[in-house]
């Protein structure tokens, strides 16, 4: 457990290092999720409209 404690404490810089990584995850995951959700929504709507036209 000592090594885990050592890792999490980041040599005393935990309160600077972890927020930096957390924000990176939030920004990148946010873009990825929003991108996929919008893509699927547009795909669905476009497929529905094109089906009706045929």
């Amino acid at each position: 457990m000592d090594s885990l404690d050592h890792f999490l404490s980041m040599g005393g810089y935990a309160r600077f290092v972890w927020p930096a990584y957390a924000l990176a995850v939030i920004v990148l995951a946010g873009f990825a999720i929003e991108g996929v959700v919008t893509y699927r929504k547009n795909r669905r709507e476009l497929d529905a409209v094109e089906k009706k036209r045929r």
């Binding site: 990825a32 547009n42 709507e45 476009l46």
Partner: peptide, 24 residues
């Protein structure tokens, strides 16, 4: 790589949205 992936995804989304608008 993340940027290229998301840019392609978003551009495809935008093109589909434009097509949808034109059809409507």
């Amino acid at each position: 790589a993340f940027f290229v992936t998301l840019l392609l995804l978003r551009m495809r989304s935008a093109l589909m949205a434009a097509k949808l608008r034109a059809i409507r």
